[in-house]
Design a protein around this nucleic acid. Structure first.
Lengths: 191, 191
DNA sequence: TCGTCTGGAGAACGTACGTTCTCTAGACGC
DNA sequence: GCGTCTAGAGAACGTACGTTCTCCAGACGA
């Protein structure tokens, strides 16, 4: 029961934080949205910062399973890399898309909360490591993965601010070209 | 005199907002840092939001002049495009670098303040238009510029969160490859 | 010199919000 | 049946902060 309450709190807080920003959402609003008492929230999360960390952890899990689910539906190693951008394209089209919650969190709280900053760093490092693994499985040199990750980050920022989803396709096109070039060079070099 | 006070206020506020985030800086802190009275601030800026907008406008000017200054030191059209990433590299190495102030502002206030969201949109649209102009002058097809802009945005985010400057060089390398490919295609197509 | 006006310093006000406390009602073991 | 414990609802508390007000000192024109 306490576990279900916890996830109800985290889900409600996540939706509110993502939609409005952390500073614009009070614990009262979380309480109302989650349908629990303030005491119940503070029992699970001693402070708002703890709740924010929990929200980021949940969001990390959702992001990871979302990307990996999309990638794992594909077998071809190169297509698997590119599937990341198709995942982004779908995400950007969602009505409530408002950018990467981690980038937003870092911008708002990165300087004030070392724990938030660290959670964001861990999340982004995890994504970079995942892309690096996909790139390696595709036979690309190590220099490719950071470039692909940068494209993905830039697409998220651009789509959020512009309010359009076209950045996903643009990033995808750039990624395709970079991948093709990296693979051609890799096939050429280890003669 | 009032003009000098205004810029003192904006400069002080910009430094504080950028370093800590908007919500973490009260008007009292701005007053102390600017060395003016609260009344003087509210005379120039009827509300905190107005001050934030003014800070973003100043920051837009500094960014624009910084990038264009770097680019204009170079003649070769392709090198001018690439100079954008060298500008980023220098910026990322600054001790107080904490990401793009506009991306941070959008993450924190984009949902709460339409004026802030619009200022960020205008800023990013201006950068995209500038890159598009540089790309056109280099003879590249229109599809290149958005890709280069996305790389620049992604580099800013990645460098800020990772706390390292390597993203600039990675984005630069990707940009060089994309530019070379786009120019080769452009030379090939219009036979 | 005197009235007026500006601007500074800082108190004050109202509100929002993170956090805690109070009170109550039900559940559960003896 | 009775003490104890938990949990809920919501009040309450303290603080932070955006904004305004008060008071006063100096400048400047008549």
């Amino acid at each position: 029961m306490t576990e279900e309450a916890r996830s109800r709190i985290v889900d409600a807080a996540d939706a509110l934080f993502y939609a409005r920003g952390f500073g614009q959402v009070g614990m009262d609003a979380v309480r109302d949205a989650a349908g629990v008492s303030l005491k119940a929230i503070y029992k699970q999360f001693p402070s708002k910062e703890d709740l924010i960390i929990a929200v980021l952890e949940k969001r990390h899990g959702m992001w990871t399973s979302g990307v990996e689910g999309r990638v794992n539906a594909i077998a071809d190693p190169v297509e698997r890399l590119i599937a990341v951008y198709d995942f982004l394209a779908d995400w950007f089209c969602e009505a409530d898309f408002r950018g990467c919650g981690f980038i937003n969190a870092f911008g708002e709280l990165g300087a004030a909360s070392p724990r938030v900053a660290e959670a964001v760093r861990v999340h982004k490092a995890g994504f970079q490591a995942y892309v690096a693994r996909l790139a390696e499985e595709a036979g690309a040199p190590a220099s490719l993965a950071p470039q692909l990750a940068i494209l993905a980050e830039g697409a998220q920022v651009t789509a959020a601010i512009a309010g359009t989803s076209e950045a996903a396709a643009q990033a995808r096109a750039a990624a395709e070209y970079l991948i093709a070039g990296a693979l051609a060079a890799a096939r050429g070099l280890p003669a």
